[in-house]
Design a protein around this nucleic acid. Sequence first.
DNA 1: AATAATCAAGACAAAAGACTCCGAAATCCA
DNA 2: TGGATTTCGGAGTCTTTTGTCTTGATTATT
Lengths: 155, 155
Amino acid sequence: MYLTQKSIYAIQALIYIALHDHGKFVPTREISKRLDIPFSFLTKILQVLSKQQILETYRGPTGGVRLLKRPTQISIEQIILSIDGDRLFTQCILRLPDCGNSKPCPLHDLFAPIRENLRDMLSHTMLSLLVKLVRENQAKLTSISNVNDLLRLKQ
Amino acid sequence: MYLTQKSIYAIQALIYIALHDHGKFVPTREISKRLDIPFSFLTKILQVLSKQQILETYRGPTGGVRLLKRPTQISIEQIILSIDGDRLFTQCILRLPDCGNSKPCPLHDLFAPIRENLRDMLSHTMLSLLVKLVRENQAKLTSISNVNDLLRLKQ
DNA sequence: AATAATCAAGACAAAAGACTCCGAAATCCA
DNA sequence: TGGATTTCGGAGTCTTTTGTCTTGATTATT
Ligand code: SF4
Ligand code: SF4
């Protein structure tokens, strides 16, 4: 509803990658299996994030993807912007063709502040916070609720 | 993004109907033309609103649709719920299968209050307010920015 | 050099959302 | 009564999003 499936997968994948960030490349296949994201769909999403300089890819055995920035430097807003563009922050209730320019739609004054809150929240929330919550088992990333179960599955 | 096109059309149509609420039935064809909403698509949407007891329909010449409730008694939340269901108020960022039940996703604590704000705003905003803003020319309903132009087109 | 593991990229397929068409039923009016 | 006008309801089409498949390029290991 709020985000496309692509953005959701991107956020989940980046959290997973950051959880395993020890300088090594994490294979897309592993992310796909652990998070139950269609493999070929995920590769396309990671390619976009790679073009956006959020991560880098490497081919061959021991290859995969790796963060290019520190998780403290990646905001959730930035991830969404990379994948979905700014639709979430510009479009909204009545989707009038030239919003804001001239007279607004009748819900604008009530809706715009909420949309601003959402954007502020997402721009101030860094990937590192989500990683911390998942690592400390205060939040879950998939239907598997214990992060240790997720990490233990490795081999 | 936030709403489906159906809900947007429903809200626009209900505002238009309320603007013309003089006890007479407003033909769907007229709403379709004035608001530039595909006719056959609009009829389906109005049929749903009719089943939800928000408006009633009448066939034949002089037929059309008419509100069953006062605009002060119709909230925007109610319109959205009738057409889209509660997705906007229950789904969200990571769309985990069993949100809220057990452990939440890592964005829940930050996102849930914003979603609640949105729901509160929409449940307290009545159709009558939007009608008032449009009638007083403080807001526009379509790309035609002057409501008088919209009403004058009648014949 | 051969093999296996990995990402890259384009074509294709399925599902969902948005929209159309058409015949039927109800109603008004001459 | 008959024709015009309108909603009703089902089926079908188009487009976008989501997901699949296949082939090829890159790289590590042996
Ligand atoms: S006027 Fe404001 S609330 Fe309305 S559609 Fe445009 S940006 Fe959204
Ligand atoms: S845990 Fe909360 S924020 Fe996360 S997907 Fe579920 S309802 Fe949305």
